[in-house]
């Protein structure tokens, strides 16, 4: 069962479990996982937000976040043996700035970030992701993957930064900006699907990406259909 987050509080603590955050007005919030917990946070972003996450020792947080026409500013600090998997998807018809700062504060921490976007506007859709690993840390995983489907030749940009001052780490980034690739288009068309429906499938594909959906599936399916 999803625990709805009360946004009247300035700081939220996550225990074991599934949490739901709906952002309908601009929001600034601190979220902290408790030590030795495993939690999942589902976010629906209809408005812009700024969230500072702190992942305490040995905690694991998965975030599934779908957004429409908003901007986000995310800062994440990871302590020892903490693990973050963040799926952030946005459909943009106006202008959207998405900034992520991931700071690996202690050893044995892991961050895997997937940013997916569909830019339907001529205006901007930006992803900036800074992965920071200070000197002397060991056994760190810092991975970021970003993809933007740029339907209207909008001003789309991905800025992946890995600021690394340690040796014993694994860091990677991958970025793609473009239209639906020809092989995907041909494969789907060869199954009798028309371009309009291919676009709808790709839109769903981008918005849901690699998320492993549970209870939020119906909600996400409904919203994605409404937003299309």
């Amino acid at each position: 069962m999803m625990n709805k987050i009360n946004i009247e509080q300035d700081k939220i603590f996550l225990n074991n479990g599934l949490y739901f955050l709906e952002v309908n007005d601009d929001l600034e919030l601190d979220i902290e996982t408790k030590e030795n917990t495993k939690s999942k946070l589902v976010i629906v972003g209809n408005s812009s937000y700024k969230i500072n996450y702190i992942l305490k020792n040995n905690s694991e947080l998965t975030i599934h976040s779908i957004n429409k026409d908003n901007s986000v500013n995310i800062s994440i600090t990871l302590f020892e043996k903490s693990k973050l998997t963040y799926h952030h998807s946005v459909i943009n018809n106006l202008t959207s700035d998405n900034t992520f700062k991931i700071i690996h504060q202690e050893n044995d921490s892991s961050s895997i970030i997937y940013n997916n976007g569909i830019n339907q506007s001529k205006d901007k859709l930006f992803f900036q992701i800074d992965g920071i690993i200070p000197k002397g840390l060991t056994n760190i995983i810092c991975s970021q993957s970003s993809k933007i489907i740029n339907y209207n030749n909008g001003n789309s940009k991905i800025i992946p930064n890995l600021i690394i001052d340690s040796n014993d780490i694994m860091a990677s980034h991958a970025s793609y900006i473009g239209n639906i690739d020809n092989d995907t288009m041909f494969y789907l068309e060869s199954r009798g699907i028309k371009e309009e429906n291919i676009k709808r499938l790709i839109y769903q594909s981008i918005m849901l990406g690699k998320m492993e959906l549970d209870e939020e599936k119906d909600l996400f399916d409904k919203l994605i259909n409404e937003w299309w």
Binding site: R191, G192, S205, K210
Partner: peptide, 26 residues
């Protein structure tokens, strides 16, 4: 291409592509 497929032509690909976010059944 989609019209040819709808006529009943099917290509069983050597290397079928993979797509995130769309289940096989969908």
């Amino acid at each position: 291409t989609y019209e040819r497929a709808r006529k009943g032509i099917f290509l069983c690909y050597q290397n079928p592509i993979s797509i995130d976010g769309i289940t096989n059944s969908e």
